[in-house]
């Protein structure tokens, strides 16, 4: 009898767990809400308003007109130039878990009808770190925007360099910066949107080279990590240090944009540039001789 009771309890518990909604715990206030509620709220905590990371799919879904998304270069998977122990295995595991082959997702899409090239770094894959393939995909996206004369929008999020790729990771900083420079010289519009966290080699390359720089509320943005700085100088860091609001105050971010307003703000910027005198700028680039 006692035994039966126990097994009945187990069955009941399993059933309840299965039927129970999937919860998400807020990393900031600790309160939990049903996953569906989080997602409908664009991954913003319904209680305290903290921003949680968005997947590349969610991000592109937020800004693109329905049905307008067209991915490119989506087959490229992780390279392992140093034959780093355990690296390929970890990459395979992450691919299985996230459905991503690398952290960078590149796509065409429309924002209220205006066609753009967009790049999203998905932090679920090696914290959005800069690998050889991430650098290559970002570079190709910049070149594609250049070739097709489209505006470029990059949502940066990165833990920094992909350590497992050594010097190959470092060189991607030069490769992507060089591509952005050429795109810029040819008159391309690049909107950089910094999301939590943007650090290290991504901060020190394409992420800080936008014509317009936006940031998400509360995002950590910096070159050196706060712990490294604290250890080096032995001083407590000021409140809000390296947060989006801090960078806005110090003049490295043009505007902090809430997710609810993101698509409209992007559209406004795109429209202002579309209506600018592109032909006139072209004449200036050709030497202003006319």
């Amino acid at each position: 009898m006692e035994k039966e009771e126990r097994s009945l309890k187990t069955v009941l518990m399993t059933v309840t767990r299965k039927l129970a909604p999937d919860y998400v715990n807020c990393k900031s206030c600790g309160r939990r809400a049903v996953r569906k509620v989080w997602q409908e709220n664009m991954n913003i905590c319904p209680f305290c308003g903290r921003y949680q990371a968005m997947s590349a799919d969610q991000r592109l879904g937020l800004i693109f007109d329905p049905g307008s998304r067209q991915d490119f270069n989506s087959d490229a998977g992780v390279r392992d130039p140093l034959n780093f122990p355990g690296y390929s295995e970890k990459a395979k595991k992450l691919e299985k878990k996230t459905g991503l082959k690398e952290s960078a997702v590149t796509a065409f899409g429309r924002i209220n009808g205006i066609r753009v090239v967009a790049v999203v770094l998905d932090t679920r894959f090696f914290m959005g770190s800069m690998s050889s393939i991430v650098g290559e995909k970002v570079t190709r996206a910049v070149e594609t925007a250049d070739r097709e004369k489209l505006p470029l929008i990059i949502f940066a999020a990165s833990g920094g360099a992909r350590m497992q790729e050594g010097i190959h990771s470092l060189m991607q900083m030069a490769k992507t910066s060089s591509a952005v420079q050429e795109f810029s010289e040819n008159g391309g519009l690049y909107i950089s949107c910094l999301t939590h966290p943007t650090t290290g080699g991504v901060t020190a390359s394409f992420a800080t080279l936008g014509d317009i720089t936006l940031a998400e509320p509360g995002a950590l943005i910096g070159f050196a990590g706060p712990r490294v700085i604290e250890q080096t100088i032995g001083v407590k860091l000021p409140k809000g240090f390296q947060r989006a609001e801090y960078l806005h105050k110090h003049g490295f971010v043009d505007r902090i944009v809430k997710r609810q307003e993101l698509k409209e703000v992007l559209y406004d910027i795109l429209k202002l540039h579309e209506d600018s005198r592109g032909g006139f700028a072209e004449d200036i680039r050709k030497g202003g001789q006319g």
Binding site: M173, A174, S177, S178, V180, Q181, E182, S184, E185, T203, A204, S205, F206, A207, T208, L209, G222, F223, A224, G225, V228, I229, T232, I233, V235, L237, P238, F241, Q242, H250, F252
Partner: peptide, 26 residues
Amino acid sequence: GAFPGIDAEEHGQGEAIARNMARMSS
């Protein structure tokens, strides 16, 4: 490496490095 400090971050360490690479490439 680049200096990890409060003032360095406030003055745009990332931007300064990125800008050098971009300009050198041209």
